[in-house]
Every structure is written in C-alpha cells, then in structure tokens.
C-alpha cells in the first residue's frame, strides 16, 4: 500500500482566493468552507510522512517510533519542573535536526500551536486572581479588595512568580508533546502508524476502520470542495442566510447518501477480493540493527529524563 499523494490533492486552486470589490471584506460561508477544506486537505497530506526521504527518524521502524511516541509523551506529562522540560525540548530539537525535516517550518508550526494551545489558554492563570503567590509584575491597583460568592479579587492585581512558572511549564509541556507527536507523524506514513499500533494490541478491525475513513475523508473533502466551487461559480449576488442553510442541509444530506453508496460499493469490492470479516495486516519484518541501537538509545534517554 504505497502512500502516494494524488496530484489533484496537491494542486492549488486560484479560484479559492476570494477578493471583494467593494465594501468591507467579509468572509461568507462559502469562502470559509473553502478555506477550511483547503487547509484540511493540504495539512492532512503535508503533515503525514511520505515513504521517501532520508534522515534519522525516517529510517527507523514504525513500531519503534510509535513506542517512542507513547514513552516520551508520557515522560513529558510526568515531569513537574521546568528544567527537565527544557532538556527534553533541546533533545527533541536535536532529533528534528537529525531527521531531515524542514527545521524552521516545523518549529514555526510548533510555536504557533504552542502559543494557541498553551500560552493563550494558560496566560490568564499567571495573575494572582487565579494563582495566588508572590506578585512580581504588578499590573493594577484597585481601591480595595473585592469578595463575591466564591471569588476573591485582591487589591493589587499582578503576575505572580508561581503563576508565571506554571504558564512556562504548561507551554513547555505542550510544545514538547507536540514536537514528539509531529516528528513521528512527519516521518511516518499514516497507514504505517496505524499498523504499528498493533503492538499495543489495538484490534485490527479498529485500525482498519481508521485507515479506511482517513482515505474516505480526503476523497469526500474533494467532492465537497467541488460542491462549494460549483455553488460559488453560480452565484451572482448575496445569498440569504436561510437559503444558505437550506443549501448546506441539502449538501450534507447528499454527502450522506454518497457516502452510503460508496461504502456499499467498497464492501462489495472487498467481498469480491475474498474479504471474510477477518482483518489481517501484513507483517513489518524483523527490526534492523539500527532499530536496536536507536531503541536502546531512546530507552536510556527516557530513563535519564525520568530521573531528572
């Protein structure tokens, strides 16, 4: 099962760039839908590793990478201090650099996601309204402290040392977890990650469902994109919200019918090829010496990180 990207999924559509001739630019449901779909299709295929390419992580067995992913993500979640998280972050940066992944592009993405999922969510907790402690950055002083119900607003509002440490810790943990998972994902084809999950005794049926739906998603995403473009090309004026909702309901129902028809065809094709309800994945083959060394290295490094 080669993981080749169909050319139509990689092509850029100039008509997706929507410009407004007058008035304040405002995205319609069609434009947002198109943008959303385009992001999904591009990210879905670009994020997942391909068969080709060189680099430390790409050359490793997918089973080893999945074990690494789980082991290190758990280690990151167990650490309670900033120092070990910084060491793990440096170690992961080294792994990324050795894996022939576009380093700056990769870290731009990681930092963006960390800012969004880590900093933006956690930052308000650095204030003494949420995390009590020693105020090191005063922000405002009220006339008096306020108490209502279970809430307490202190007279002096500011960032606390404990709060800032908590935010830094959370951001580092989010960043390290994302780096570990994205490194494995960028260097391993999706179907191989799924196949490798068998080492955790995940039933083959469940993995097969995931693999099949992953393929369905991109096939139907393309269908959906065509629907949006067809609708957009027929529009000459503004569309009422009510009409837009009716159109969307109709298209979702159409996708539902099409998906049902497709699953029936897929099932018949599977039966015609000898499917007997028993799901079997082909074996990966034996681990190489390189995998053995890498496994030992990861194990030792993980133990050191646990001890730190």
């Amino acid at each position: 099962m080669k993981n080749k990207i169909p050319s139509f999924l990689l092509s850029q559509h100039p008509q997706m760039r929507v410009t407004h001739e007058r008035g304040t630019p405002r995205s319609s449901y069609l434009e947002k839908g198109l943008r959303h779909l385009s992001e999904i299709i591009t990210a879905g295929f670009m994020n997942v590793g391909q068969e080709t390419g060189k680099g430390f992580f790409r050359s490793l067995d997918p089973r080893l990478k999945v074990l690494f992913l789980v082991f290190f993500v758990i280690i990151v979640s167990l650490k309670r201090d900033i120092f070990p998280e910084v060491i793990i972050a440096l170690f992961m940066a080294l792994m990324v650099a050795l894996s022939h992944v576009d380093f700056w592009r990769f870290y731009r993405k990681i930092i963006g996601l960390t800012f969004f999922f880590g900093f933006c969510i956690a930052f308000p907790s650095a204030f003494n309204v949420v995390t009590s402690g020693e105020v090191i950055v005063p922000v405002a002083t009220l006339a008096q402290a306020y108490d209502f119900w279970i809430y307490h607003i202190p007279r002096e509002i500011g960032l606390t040392r404990q709060g800032i440490e908590g935010v830094v810790m959370l951001c580092l943990r989010v960043m390290n977890s994302l780096t570990i998972s994205l490194l494995v994902i960028h260097t391993t084809p999706f179907h191989k990650i799924m196949k490798a999950l068998q080492i955790f005794r995940v039933p083959g049926t469940f993995l097969f469902i995931i693999t099949l739906s992953y393929k369905y998603i991109f096939i139907f995403a393309k269908t959906l994109e065509n629907m949006y473009l067809a609708r957009k090309s027929r529009l000459v004026g503004a569309v009422k919200n009510h009409e837009a909702r009716m159109w969307i309901a109709g298209r979702i129902a159409f996708i539902f019918r099409k998906a049902r028809a497709r699953y029936d065809e897929v099932f018949r094709a599977m039966v015609a090829r000898g499917f007997t309800e028993e799901v079997k994945f082909s074996d990966f083959g034996a681990l190489t010496r390189m995998d053995g060394y890498a496994g030992c290295f990861f194990l030792l490094t993980g133990i050191v990180f646990l001890w730190l």
């Binding site: 469902i209 739906s213 369905y216 998603i217 998906a259 699953y263 799901v279």
Partner: peptide
C-alpha cells in the same frame, strides 16, 4: 461494519 463505520466516521 468496517466500511460502514469508516463511512460514518468520514461523514
């Protein structure tokens, strides 16, 4: 059930 559930997930 396999293609059916995959279809349901994609939907």
């Amino acid at each position: 059930q396999i293609p059916y559930l995959a279809m349901a997930a994609a939907f």
